[in-house]
Design a protein around this nucleic acid. Structure first.
Lengths: 235, 235
DNA sequence: CGTGTGATTGACGCCTGTCAACGTCTGTGG
DNA sequence: CCACAGACGTTGACAGGCGTCAATCACACG
């Protein structure tokens, strides 16, 4: 908790991101800044548990958070990751349901907490903001539907290749084409819904085929075109 | 197109359903009623195609519509069904993306079409309505996430048992415990992401085990408790 | 240096997808 | 009224993808 380095001020912070907060007026941002709390969360911390009641939502300022559901026999199913600029917990808050996933810090994170009342107050006052949030949710729903189709129809091999691109889109590559997120084999397996061993074997195959290069948890994409073909992703 | 039997008037129609439209004022309902179109759609008709641009959304007044994505090699993945009181097409309309699924009539349907401008006008004016829509979307997102977990972790057998309950929740049973929706074996397969033959074999097994009774496309639930256990659904 | 977590590899076998053949039913056209 | 086509349902054979189990290795950390 020593890393209180810089508590972000909303008017500094939110403008960077072309997030939904860009719809807010100056006054609203000042209020938001006043209402919010901001905390540092160490890797491994759990922000909230699946099944708990959330009374606010979080805006990730720094770090990475993993959102996962717990399925059969405690097996985790990763739903998505949240990084700088992403918000989490809003789904349960809005629908009034219990949290449908657990949020766990994957890389040390700074997060702002905005109480539910503040959110609902904004929703009542600022329709552009609400519409923006609605659009965000709709986009996420579209992604979820796509993922259902993939997971239902593609082989593990295809899904593994595909997830590399999903991670690339979310976290980018460095100059050496190395994925800028570090996941265990088990986590990769828990995204695509397979066994850890399968991920290991397939990654090895990809490596043997010169499609990727591995060094611990670093994954370097060597032949994106071929990978895309394996993933059955076109255009 | 002869079945113009009764074009529903919004003030008659919407009140029945405790839908999000209940948030509208009288004036807004009158406007909505004026703006909307209403049509009869025969079984098999396609309302809109995946990838097309939708410029409004539909409210199902009667009948059943199947929403599906087309995956690998043209295989359909059923995302959800819409029945009386449900709205479809709003996701793409709101997110401004192309339709992420095809909507096809499964049982003769009467549907109202509300132009996008009317929706956006409502969203700008009536925040309670917007919040309600936001909540609807969030609930749907929660369901999608659950389904991802199921499809990723459960066996085909478990998923098939589970889908019987999903259908029960959506369409109910008659007095004889027969599911009130008629699907082909292939459609069942396309919900849970498996092969038609697998569905046939598993349904036969369920029948042999006296869990269900089959008569054409009618499925009668005999032992819901045992089925729930197979589906790994607790509480 | 012991402990624990994660990564790897091999063996094994079942679940499930694919292919093929055939039966059933319905609607259409001659 | 019959023949035929086409959609759907069923069954069997078969192979292989992938999950499970178990053993071993690698590495970090207290």
């Amino acid at each position: 908790m020593k890393n209180l380095t810089t508590i972000p001020e909303c008017d500094d912070c939110l403008i960077l991101s072309n997030s939904l907060f860009s719809q807010l007026t100056n006054d609203e941002i000042i209020n938001l800044n006043f209402d919010k709390g901001c905390n540092f969360h160490k890797k491994g911390n759990i922000i909230y548990h699946e099944g708990s009641r959330v009374n606010g939502f979080y805006c990730v300022n720094k770090g990475i958070v993993k959102l996962y559901k717990t399925g059969l026999e405690g097996r985790e199913q990763i739903i998505r990751f949240a990084k700088k600029g992403d918000i989490i917990g809003y789904r349960s808050l809005l629908s009034g349901e219990l949290a449908c996933h657990t949020a766990k810090v994957l890389e040390d994170a700074t997060m702002c907490f905005i109480p539910g009342e503040s959110l609902f107050a904004l929703l009542r006052k600022n329709s552009e903001f609400t519409i923006e949030l609605l659009q965000l949710t709709c986009r996420e729903l579209g992604e979820a539907n796509s993922f259902i189709t993939d997971i239902a129809q593609k082989t593990v091999r295809e899904r593994l290749a595909e997830v590399l691109f999903i991670l690339k889109d979310n976290f980018g590559l460095d100059v050496d084409n190395v994925l800028q997120i570090s996941l265990t084999r088990e986590e990769l397996a828990n995204i695509i819904g397979t066994a850890t061993e399968s991920v290991i074997r397939l990654l090895s195959e990809f490596k043997d085929d010169k499609l990727i290069e591995l060094s611990g948890r670093k994954i370097k994409l060597l032949d994106q075109k071929a990978l895309k073909k394996i993933a059955n992703m076109y255009e």
